[in-house]
Design a binder for these strands. Structure first.
Lengths: 341, 341
DNA sequence: CTGAAAGCGCTTACAG
DNA sequence: CTGAAAGCGCTTACAG
């Protein structure tokens, strides 16, 4: 007959090991307080019984849930998936479980999501972009839970950031095109409502063009957040501003749609039109032509955001901010304009 | 002075409403047992105090965590992200929180992930593909927790499936190419270790070719699971089997890499080489040429898997299986071969 | 329809 | 280094 170890709670382990429940608890949570031999015996019994501490009981008594909350725009952007992967695995190493909520791109209405994360017991929270929901700022002021935001680096925000300067990134892209000789620009952007990344990129784009006296500061087009939106935006741009020779896309996702629309219209990239992306998605170097884009340190941000929150959890101090660099990655989709105007 | 509502537990609500804690609990969880007027009063007080039930206490006492576990190969495949999005939002409607773990594509070693989900209190679990980990099957036999697997439809599995027949899907793709007149095939596949989807697709591909007397049953190449792997696989295929005119990719992700490698080599799609994908990713119709692929009902599977688990949770019966259809979606990347051999 | 009482499975002062 | 006791915040028989 197969001797299957019987499962039981901490009390069962205590009894079998001939110690008190308190000692079993300590053997796991405060091992340095327990005699080595006793501890070894407890661990052996626990393993034999396949003892699993009940997270609910542990959380109730210790007031620590070991849960981390994340509110993301979407999991459908692989750049966020990568970031979260790193973030989550770092926390997993420390015994934390991550719960993820998707909220869309508008940060003016993330209150319910944040509240839900907190209601579920999140001990720390990761957000994306500047918080623009007054109700969330109220929560922030009242709670001890450390928050970090990523993917942007808002000045003077209530939420510490582990991100990068979106304006600087777009500036590098726009100046690259300017340096190539482009004078007629357009931008394919996402919605700016409750989205500081988009606003920062648009503002930087406009600033560069105005400083250079180039055309296109007002040619900022948005048709949504997916690939098809990029195609529709390209269509609108070429219909309204056929003199455009350079397009700044606020994500590589838009660039994919834009490429397809160019093909449909017989527009050659980069001969007729230079296109630049954002994020350096996996497919960026594989497009035809390979996409010039801005490489964003997604893995590093995920890891670093986790470290910042972990440290805050230990020290009870606010999380440490960190501003990372992006890299303008030149590939084949940008070139000097053929016809100077 | 701003009158801020003071937070408190259930006991505080009970006192303020002049009822017992039990009645407050019932007002939320068993409303039909509480007098309407009393209940209204309790709800008003609770709202004023911003009462939030403690999930740990609730879980400990009721033995219900309201957590659902998911173990996925990766979040980086947008098809899984979509599936999980739907799955999660359906459960959220019912007050459940979803916790997601990524495990890679090899199902022979998911035991630790599944155990972790269970240890965290998952009341139901979603998996991808056939379970090939004996230790997981042991867990399955011992636990009452309902499991569902998705994305494949294994026969006689211990885990009920809400998925589709991968062999049938690949058969449709291969027969399409055969009907166009192709005789020399290759397949770009993922690793088959612990991955029934890959094995089913490869088997179907081979069966079709053998039945038709076409070449390529042994030309199944794998270089990993990302886009670059698709490119390397294409290179290997064309280096070793230059007569190949048709390639079946086991994900659109491989097709992106294959397209890029074709361009590099001056191979024209579909004139020189027909390529067919799997999954119908967002970019499939936007590639050049648009990718013929197999559309998979990701949203529907996510929703349906959630429903199956929800029903199982209520009825205590095993989850209901469901086999869905895929759709061979013809676009521009497949055509008759130029040179019959 | 409501309340008093017990208890879910742990952790943590407190005492030794 | 260890144990006895209390208690985290709820829910749930049980009794009325």
């Amino acid at each position: 007959m197969q001797e299957r170890p019987k499962r039981g709670g901490l009390a069962a382990v205590a009894k079998a090991a001939g110690v008190s429940p308190a000692t079993v608890s300590r053997a796991f949570n405060l091992p340095e307080l327990v005699n080595d031999a006793v501890r070894a015996r407890i661990l052996a019994v626990a393993a034999e019984q396949q003892y699993r501490p009940d997270p609910a009981a542990r959380a109730l008594r210790s007031r620590r849930t070991h849960m981390i909350g994340v509110a993301l725009p979407t999991l459908d952007y692989s750049i966020f998936a990568r970031l979260i992967n790193r973030f989550q695995s770092r926390f997993a190493e420390e015994g934390y479980t991550t719960i993820i909520l998707t909220t869309g791109f508008d940060n003016r209405n993330i209150h319910d999501s944040v509240q839900l994360l907190l209601d579920r017991g999140a001990e720390a929270v990761l957000l994306v972009g500047a918080v623009e929901d007054a109700k969330v700022n109220e929560i922030l002021a009242e709670t001890q839970v450390p928050f970090v935001t990523t993917y942007s680096f808002p000045k003077g925000s209530a939420v510490p950031a582990v991100g990068f300067d979106n304006g600087e990134a777009t500036q590098a892209a726009t100046e690259h095109l300017l340096a190539l000789g482009h004078r007629h620009f357009a931008m394919i952007a996402g919605l700016t409502d409750g989205n500081d990344r988009q606003r920062d990129r648009i503002a930087a784009y406009r600033r560069c063009l105005e400083r250079a006296g180039a055309t296109g500061a007002d040619r900022v087009v948005c048709h949504g957040f997916d690939m098809a939106a990029g195609g529709r935006a390209l269509a609108e741009i070429m219909d309204h501003y056929p003199d455009t020779t350079a397009i700044v896309c606020n994500t590589d996702i838009f660039a994919v749609g834009a490429y397809a629309e160019c093909r449909k219209r017989g527009i050659r990239v980069p001969d007729d039109l230079s296109i630049i992306g954002f994020d350096d998605a996996e497919y960026a170097p594989l497009l035809d032509p390979p996409l010039t884009t801005i490489a964003v340190p997604a893995d590093e941000m995920g890891l670093c955001a986790a470290e910042a929150l972990l440290a805050a959890l230990k020290s009870k101090a606010p999380p440490q901010e960190r501003c990372m660099d992006t890299t303008l990655t030149l590939r084949g989709s940008t070139a000097a304009p053929r016809h100077k105007s």
